[in-house]
């Protein structure tokens, strides 16, 4: 029978070298200004899911909430070995904080139906909050294990995992279904070359429409045929809107987000106030002398 493993991943802006220009006036992030990547710890979660499937059988479904371009990380998930992918996308999701995001993901998980394990990265590098995992577990009323390093065993409807805690670790057993947040403790496999060739053709409905030059009525039949063909070859990335997952409009996006950004302040650095020490033996000797004299160094 095997396990149904659901992985929630996020496409994130590569946060190295971000400047104030990457922020919009309303305080939200202008993602277009940055290269987008697969959130690193979500890759660890996907790797753990694929290993789990390897050990116990079953299937791995990867879902992400994001703009249409987030389909790119779903294709990457297919290259790595995912069985099925879902893009949860709608303009109405924009501006979501962690509470609205976890609600949205919980609606998607419910639409998937039954699952045994949900895996996600511990945190996303664009916010580092680590909040969405536990919030999603609560919304689905299932237990959570956080900072998971390794799954030890799955047996009799229970899962045993090793989790990091402050100053050590715990081995915890949970009944299934459960949600696990995963840390950087495995090495995500690279994209398979064969799979890459095969799945680079995987598309969402919107991408198929765009490729076909728009949704002309005359083409409707042809598009339906094409969709059927893609689904049959497993090249179909499901695309779910807010309505598709039955989300309450008041609980998603900005309206569903209690936290508001009051203001964003760019930190202006006043430079040149430090004492310049030349990198020479004499220069450094003088510095050490001063530090010792001031009892800063002893």
């Amino acid at each position: 029978m095997g396990l149904t493993i659901l992985v929630f991943a996020k496409q994130v802006p590569d946060t190295k070298n971000v400047t104030g220009k990457a922020m919009k006036d309303d305080g939200t992030v202008n993602r277009a200004a940055l290269p987008a990547i697969f959130n690193p710890e979500d890759l660890n979660a996907l790797e753990m899911a694929l290993e789990l499937r390897g050990r116990f059988g079953g299937k791995v479904i990867v879902a992400t909430m994001g703009p249409p371009t987030a389909a790119n990380i779903l294709r990457h998930a297919l290259y790595m070995g995912a069985d099925e992918t879902i893009l949860i996308t709608d303009r109405k999701f924009a501006g979501a904080d962690t509470l609205a995001t976890s609600y949205t993901l919980s609606c998607a998980a419910k639409k998937v139906g039954t699952f045994d394990v949900i895996l996600c990265g511990r945190q996303a590098i664009d916010g580092d909050t680590a909040q969405v995992g536990p919030q999603l577990a609560e919304k689905l009323d299932i237990p959570q294990l956080t900072y998971v390093e390794e799954i030890r065993d799955v047996k009799g409807g229970k899962l045993r995992a090793k989790c990091q805690i402050d100053g050590g670790f715990e081995v915890v057993e949970t009944p299934l279904p459960a949600l696990l947040t995963v840390i950087d403790a495995n090495t995500p496999r690279p994209a398979g070359a064969k799979r890459l060739m095969q799945y680079k053709k995987a598309v969402t409905r919107s991408e198929l429409l765009a490729k076909s030059g728009g949704a002309d009525y005359e083409d409707a039949n042809r598009l339906a045929e094409e969709e059927k063909r893609l689904k049959k070859s497993n090249l179909w990335i499901h695309e779910w809107s807010a309505a598709d997952i039955g989300a309450d409009p008041n609980r998603i996006g900005l309206p569903g987000s209690p936290t508001k950004v009051k203001n964003i302040q760019s930190v202006v650095l006043a430079g040149g106030t430090y004492k310049d020490i030349p990198p020479t033996e004499d220069g450094i000797k003088g510095l050490v002398h001063d530090l010792v004299a001031e009892h800063i160094l002893s």
Binding site: S102, P134, L136, A137, K139, T146, Y147, D166, S257, P258
Partner: peptide, 23 residues
């Protein structure tokens, strides 16, 4: 914002439908 705090605070916030800001 310990390992336990980062597990508990979001679970409580989700249940309570409250905003939560990290770190």
């Amino acid at each position: 914002a310990t390992v336990a705090g980062r597990s508990l605070a979001p679970r409580v916030a989700s249940k309570q439908l409250a905003g939560l800001t990290a770190d």
